[in-house]
Amino acid sequence: MAERTQKQKPAPAKTEEVVEEAPAASKQGDKLKAELDDLLDEIDGVLESNAEDFVKSYVQKGGQ
């Protein structure tokens, strides 16, 4: 638990830092969103075309 307590300590100082960090954070957020958008574009192209049939026909026998 020691590691955890240490990690939580900086939390109270956050209010002041937020102003400064906000642009960087949102930039990071934008980057992640753009990455996800690209990924979703790719998935649109790769995903099995008839999802309904694909899911229905994926039947396995139980194993271990």
């Binding site: 790769v46 099995e48 999802a51 899911v55």
Partner: peptide, 26 residues
């Protein structure tokens, strides 16, 4: 409950490199 979401789940584990979504997930 849209089938496309379940399809996406299955395809995450597809061993074909051109279909596997895990290979694309970073």
């Amino acid at each position: 409950d849209d089938a496309r979401l379940k399809a996406l789940d299955l395809q995450y584990h597809d061993m074909r490199t051109d279909k596997c979504l895990a290979l694309r997930a970073g």
